[in-house]
Amino acid sequence: MKPFLRTMGAIVWKDLAAEWRSREMISGMLVFALLVVFIFNFALELSPATRSSVTAGVLWVTFAFAGTLGLNRSMAAEKDRGCLDGLLLAPVDRTALYFGKMLSNLVFMLAVAVIVMPVYSVLYTVNLMQPGLWAVVALGSLGYVSVGTLLASMAVQARTRDILLPILLFPVLIPLLVAAVKASSGFLQAIPMEEIWPWLNLMIVYDVVFISTAFMVFEAVVEE
């Protein structure tokens, strides 16, 4: 277990240190996310009655699109200078590499969410500062990066990786995004918790299924 955790820790440290220096990924994701927020705000001109039901959709569309930028960039950084081979040459468990990359991507995704959410709160005049909503963001982000890291590892091998990743990712994300939008909307509209639980359960099951799937297939995905 110790080598596994040490490998994971090394990958996360490396990704965070590299991103701290370049700020390429976070700044790209953030600018894109904020632009989407502003564009939807002006395009939809929501009435107070419909705002809380629509806002959740806007929130998750923003996260989903901004997230693909981050995932593409994260794996491209490994591939372009041959670093993916460098990782694969090391005598380490391949799933530790996956979990390391997944954790880094989760940190970046949550960092974007932490900055974007208050802006949402102001622009859409909704109270986003609810623990339940943050739990949905955490569960949704975890599911997103678990499947996203796996598919980005596949897409990065192709020349058309920038196009390929969203094409592969979004169909697989549909159950998660539907559940995340419904659960977020439930918290924003303050509907009873028993109506929100099924969506939360769906997100938990999705996360478990895709983390387990990635655990089993990642080695086959990254090796020739």
């Binding site: 490396k14 240190a17 590299a18 220096r21 950084a77 200078r81 041959g82 081979d85 040459l89 005598p91």
Partner: peptide, 16 residues
Amino acid sequence: QRLGVVSHLPLLYGDL
């Protein structure tokens, strides 16, 4: 564990 590899790509992280 017993192998070192050098290719024409550096396999190094530019931001480290």
